[in-house]
Simulated assay, not measured.
Amino acid sequence: MTAQPTPPTGTELARPGHRSVEALHSMIYFSPDADEAFTALGLDTRPMRYFAGRAAPMGAVGAGIVAATFYNFNPRIIAEVIPRAWSIAAPATVVETRFRAADASLRRLLGPEALGSDELAEAAALARRATDACRPEARPLFAGHADLDWPEAPHLVLWHAASLLREHRGDGHLMVLQEAGLTGAQALVLQITSGEGLSRKFAQLSRGWSDQEWQQAQDELRQRGLLDDAGEITAAGREFREDVEHRTDALAAAPWAHLGAENAQRLAGHGKQLSRLIAKAGAFPGQAFAGGGRANEG
């Protein structure tokens, strides 16, 4: 009798699952609908819109809490806009506005055919079911989002579930970075040096790190053997990063194990299809997109 293949574990399903649905959440950060709606509230700079939009589910928290949960951003640039943003728009208003912007964006990007498809409805149901296994302990950004009411429309159920899965994984990732002894700046430098994600220029500018601070993080990573003298990632650095990602997968395994391999793979299939659709419709202007994602560094 031929041996049957062993079904993948929750840990093995976590990374491809994350990559398949992450774009369905992160499109909000590139959305002209969100920019317009937040600007109308008075959140008139991109950093304010980003920090307030993502942190609002936690309530009117201070800059220190946002810096702790966003991790790889320089606390200095967060303090420039938080908590001032809450004097302009209350967190509950920001949350409501963000959902309306997500609604407008997904309707525009998906189009009526995909919006009313069985695939989207199944993806929404599966993604919501996956979040049932997410626990809030030690995951403040996830917990804030998990306290929000569920929307009714399937495309918004999917968006909210993708947001929950992303923040659940992200909070776990920060636990791993702490255990690995990486500061936010070091984690960002190591990620960018590995060739994943953003360019150094954009990452450094958007995260608020000066050339001197970037160089200091490089020097610290070099002392640990994770970068070489030229500032390139070493073999040990790549092994270190993969270990960080694997441990992040383990902490993110619960929702995917809860679905089981067959349903997790169905959700991943639908997620990839829908992610490609919104990318083709212009969800990520100027950004390369190959139907995947990456672990959240902060």
Rank of each mutant, 00 (worst) to 15 (best):
G181W: 13
A279T: 10
S31T: 03
L177N: 10
L110F: 06
A261V: 13
D171K: 02
F284Q: 05
M27A: 01
Y29A: 08
A102W: 03
H25P: 01
A279C: 11
P75S: 13
M175L: 02
G269H: 08
R76T: 03
H168E: 14
G10H: 11
S194M: 11
G172K: 01
L182H: 12
A133G: 06
V66A: 13
L205N: 02
P16L: 07
A104S: 10
S275C: 03
V157R: 09
L13M: 02
D149V: 04
A123Q: 12
P136N: 12
E239Y: 14
P57I: 01
C134Q: 06
Q287L: 08
R135D: 13
L156H: 02
A290D: 09
T9P: 02
A67Q: 05
T131C: 11
R224L: 10
D219A: 10
I77H: 00
Q273N: 01
A143K: 11
H18T: 06
K280G: 10
S206M: 05
G64W: 07
L177K: 06
A92C: 12
A90Q: 11
I77D: 04
K201Q: 15
L226M: 12
P151H: 03
A252P: 01
E22T: 08
A153T: 07
T6M: 13
R107G: 05
P5S: 09
A127V: 05
A127R: 09
E167C: 01
L43Y: 07
D132A: 09
L205W: 06
T234D: 06
H18K: 07
G10F: 09
A121F: 07
Q215I: 11
A123L: 13
L188P: 00
A37I: 12
A254F: 11
Q212V: 06
G42V: 12
G271A: 03
E80G: 11
Q287H: 08
V66P: 04
A124H: 04
H270S: 04
A254C: 14
R166Q: 14
D228L: 03
T39R: 02
F240W: 15
P47E: 14
W214C: 12
P5M: 11
M175E: 05
V189H: 10
L41N: 03
H246F: 15
G184N: 02
T97V: 13
P285C: 08
P154A: 13
E262G: 08
L115A: 07
R98A: 08
L13G: 00
W256C: 09
L221I: 05
Q212W: 09
A162S: 09
Y50R: 05
A92G: 13
A264K: 07
L226F: 12
G59C: 15
H155Y: 05
A261I: 15
R294M: 13
H258T: 07
E119D: 09
H270N: 02
H168T: 07
I77Y: 03
T234M: 07
A102C: 02
L158E: 14
D103R: 05
L259F: 14
L205T: 02
W256T: 00
G237R: 06
S20K: 10
R108K: 04
A102V: 00
G59N: 15
D243Q: 14
S117F: 09
L24Y: 14
S163N: 02
R247H: 12
F240I: 14
P7R: 03
V94L: 05
R128I: 08
E113S: 13
F240R: 15
L164S: 00
A257C: 06
N72F: 07
W159E: 10
P154Q: 15
L164K: 00
A68R: 08
A185I: 04
A268T: 12
